[in-house]
Amino acid sequence: MNLTDRDKITLAKSFTELAIENNLITPCADPVKTANEVTAFFNTIIDTIEGNTDNQ
């Protein structure tokens, strides 16, 4: 499947929003740490879509 960069970002954004809504990303007392958790999740989705993981 060939996705454009825009499609990859849209897909990762949707997954990240769902993860936040379903408490799959734990909020931290420090908002910077929470932002880092969200960013790490988003980047993991992008990496997985692009096949940049060892799990494939």
Rank of each mutant, 00 (worst) to 15 (best):
F15D: 06
A19F: 02
P31G: 13
L3K: 12
C28T: 11
P31H: 11
G51F: 01
V38A: 03
I20V: 13
S14T: 07
R6I: 02
I49E: 11
D47S: 13
I9D: 00
A12D: 05
I20G: 12
D54N: 09
I46Q: 07
T48R: 15
V32A: 10
K13E: 05
N55L: 05
C28K: 15
T10E: 01
A35F: 10
R6W: 04
G51A: 07
I49K: 13
V32T: 10
E50P: 04
F41I: 01
A35M: 11
N22F: 06
N36F: 03
N22K: 14
K8I: 11
M1Y: 07
I46N: 09
M1I: 10
A19K: 01
I45W: 00
T48G: 10
P27F: 04
P27T: 06
P27I: 11
T10R: 06
F42Y: 15
I9C: 03
N2M: 11
F41L: 02
M1C: 11
A35H: 03
D5V: 03
E50K: 05
T4A: 11
N52K: 15
S14W: 09
E37F: 03
Q56R: 12
N43K: 15
N36P: 08
I45H: 11
N36V: 02
T16R: 10
L24N: 08
R6T: 07
D30C: 03
D30Q: 08
A12C: 02
I9E: 06
D30I: 05
D30Y: 06
N2E: 13
T53V: 10
V38R: 14
E37K: 13
T4V: 13
K13V: 06
P31V: 01
A35T: 04
E37Y: 11
R6E: 12
T39Y: 01
N55T: 10
E50F: 04
N22P: 10
V32C: 02
K8A: 01
I45N: 05
E17V: 01
V38E: 08
N22W: 00
T34Y: 01
F15E: 07
N22M: 00
T34M: 08
